[in-house]
Computed example of a mutant assay.
Amino acid sequence: MPFILTRITRDGLSRLMAKYVVGQIVCHERGWMDTHMKQIKKDCIGWHTFHSFRSLDQLTVGVMGLGKIGLTTAKVLKGFGCRVHGLVRTPRSHSSVEPFVDQLWHGREGLADFLKDCDYLVNLMPSTPLTHGLLGDEVLTGASRRPVIVNVGRGDIITEADLLKALEQGWIFAAVLDCYEKEPIPEDSFLWTHPRVVMTPHNSYNNNEDYKRHHIQTEFIVNFENFLAGQPLTGEVDWQTGY
């Protein structure tokens, strides 16, 4: 029998992950990683080169998964002027995600249209049988703007092999990864050294100990007291859907 499992639902987690997404997009657009590498190499001439970049209000960002974290991310992106496209697993009305999502698509049948105009793809979907390999095979050939993938959801939405193929074939421009098909990441993985891959150690949600005490412990205590009292729990996982 499945046991009762709950997840964190407080707004603090959603805001932290939304900030990670915006930060990585700005970092990529402004070429700060390249500038830093020129600093390390003491490349004085290259370091002074101006980097042409797009502002956030010039970008279309596709957000995959519009739960609490996804909607918060869409809201933050919209606040910076981005055009936001949304993809959800189960059908819902567009009015349920307005005014933070400009266009909405559903499931695998809507994926091709969702991908067409995105400059960035932000994955915030959970790991379920319906999301495994969702961006695999050759589905990314339909992403005409060669988007950057920002994966802060689950790594199994695309295999390493399919990700490498998408990069090498030019279907996507780059990948920013905070989660992976295999964790820990094998030492021989191409991800460590690929010039168009940025990796972070699955910490997009993480903050200091004060945050953990204030949010995680507080929410656990409230849920535990509700459990003992026979009251409904917040963030209870549905074992049928997988999240």
Rank of each mutant, 00 (worst) to 15 (best):
residue 1 M to C: 10
residue 2 P to G: 06
residue 2 P to I: 12
residue 3 F to T: 11
residue 4 I to R: 15
residue 6 T to E: 06
residue 8 I to D: 02
residue 8 I to Q: 14
residue 17 M to D: 01
residue 21 V to F: 04
residue 24 Q to R: 13
residue 27 C to I: 05
residue 32 W to G: 08
residue 40 I to M: 12
residue 40 I to G: 00
residue 43 D to F: 10
residue 46 G to K: 00
residue 49 T to H: 12
residue 52 S to G: 05
residue 53 F to W: 13
residue 57 D to A: 07
residue 57 D to G: 08
residue 63 V to C: 09
residue 69 I to D: 00
residue 69 I to M: 08
residue 71 L to K: 11
residue 72 T to N: 07
residue 74 A to M: 10
residue 77 L to D: 06
residue 83 R to I: 11
residue 85 H to A: 13
residue 88 V to I: 14
residue 99 P to C: 04
residue 101 V to F: 12
residue 102 D to G: 13
residue 103 Q to F: 08
residue 108 R to E: 11
residue 112 A to K: 15
residue 116 K to M: 11
residue 117 D to N: 12
residue 117 D to H: 07
residue 118 C to E: 00
residue 128 T to P: 06
residue 133 G to S: 02
residue 134 L to K: 01
residue 140 L to Y: 10
residue 140 L to N: 02
residue 144 S to N: 03
residue 146 R to A: 01
residue 147 P to L: 01
residue 151 N to Q: 03
residue 167 L to T: 01
residue 168 E to Y: 04
residue 173 F to V: 00
residue 178 D to F: 03
residue 185 I to D: 01
residue 186 P to L: 07
residue 187 E to D: 15
residue 189 S to Y: 07
residue 192 W to L: 04
residue 192 W to I: 05
residue 196 R to E: 06
residue 198 V to R: 11
residue 208 N to D: 15
residue 209 E to Y: 15
residue 212 K to N: 09
residue 212 K to R: 14
residue 213 R to P: 01
residue 215 H to Y: 15
residue 215 H to L: 12
residue 216 I to G: 01
residue 226 N to Y: 07
residue 228 L to N: 10
residue 236 E to P: 06
residue 241 T to A: 14
